[in-house]
């Protein structure tokens, strides 16, 4: 059964000055999924998110959050939304608790009980009465999420949520986002310029470049057949000959060879090389990188 659509974007456009920053975006978010918004810096991720949360007005197109158009029914739409745009910028001169209190007062029926709940959920209970300016970036990020969750939103929008976090923090954040989607049934939109991050976190991805969505698909499908293997062999010429007779190859400048990855065939190729008297110094399975994916999808268009 198809899950309910919580956020629906249709033909979204934004012109700033004379530049068309966002050109005709259309996508949907469903209940309980983590949706990735993947694109290089300057692709227009933040600009799109600013439109989704009502900070800037679209030049044309429509945005609906849980069925409420954000222009006509701003209040209803925002009630079902929590967001962090770029950095979690709360008031540094207030305590974490007072920050939450501040934003709880802007919602209906959110009291002390709920503040305590979200504080516990993000694990800030011990430091909640300290001033925010004494918090680490990770703690601010968590407080930002606590704020976003105050009103029990259906849709959570996070712009580059792992930016600046250390590896442990990134992992924690990832698990937390998955938890929110799977256990609490939220739709989460996460933007990032890192494929590796999106890959581990998201169910579906939209790839955006220069304000255009190039493709929307599930992560598995996007990455299918795109893993490569780097061969470091000696003697080089002979090895090249052997490999090229087996599969299509690509020669790199640093005297290595690139081939497709195939779970069954790669060990077989290795065996053949060894049999031919070529010493295999290194076989390196390479995860696809955004650049490659991009080059392919945009047909050689360079990333800005």
């Amino acid at each position: 059964m198809e899950k309910k659509i919580t956020l629906s974007v249709k033909n979204l456009k934004k012109v700033i000055g004379r530049r068309e920053i966002i050109k005709n975006l259309t996508f949907d978010l469903r209940e309980g999924e983590v949706f990735g918004f993947l694109g290089p810096n300057g692709a227009g991720k933040t600009t799109t998110i600013r439109m989704l949360v009502g900070l800037i007005k679209p030049t044309s197109g429509s945005i609906q959050i849980c069925g409420n158009n954000i222009e006509d029914h701003f209040q209803e739409a925002m009630t079902s939304l929590g967001c962090i745009v770029e950095n979690p910028e709360l008031y540094p001169y207030l305590s974490g608790y007072n920050n939450l209190l501040h934003f709880a007062r802007m919602l209906d029926d959110v009291g002390d009980e709920r503040i305590r709940e979200v504080t516990e959920l993000v694990g800030l209970t011990e430091r909640i009465h300290d001033k925010v300016k004494t918090y680490s970036l990770g703690m601010r990020q968590r407080l930002g999420i606590a704020q976003a969750l105050l009103g029990k939103p259906k849709v959570l929008i996070l712009d580059e949520p792992t930016n600046g976090l250390d590896p442990a923090g990134i992992r924690e954040m990832r698990q937390f986002i998955r938890f929110l989607a799977e256990e609490e049934g939220l739709s989460v939109l996460v933007s990032s310029h890192l494929l590796s991050e999106i890959q581990l976190l998201c169910d579906r991805v939209a790839i955006i470049s220069k304000g255009v969505i190039i493709r929307v698909d599930t992560v598995q499908q996007l990455l299918e057949n795109r893993e490569r293997v780097v061969w470091h062999i000696d003697p080089f010429e002979k090895g090249k000959q052997v490999l090229s007779s087996l599969t299509s190859i690509e020669e790199k400048d640093d005297r290595t060879i690139l081939t497709d990855f195939d779970e069954k065939k790669t060990p077989e190729w290795n065996k053949r090389l060894v049999e031919a008297g070529v010493s295999v110094i290194e076989i390196n399975r390479k995860m696809p990188v955004l650049e490659d994916l991009f080059l392919e999808l945009t047909g050689g268009d360079t990333i800005e």
Binding site: V53, G54, L55, F74, Q75, E76, A77, M78, T79, L81, C83, V85, E86, N87, E89, L90, Y91, P92, F103, M106, L107, D108, Q147, G151
Partner: peptide
Amino acid sequence: SLGSIKLLLTRPVK
């Protein structure tokens, strides 16, 4: 300058 305007204006208050 703090950036908190982004939270203030994305809450359900006109």
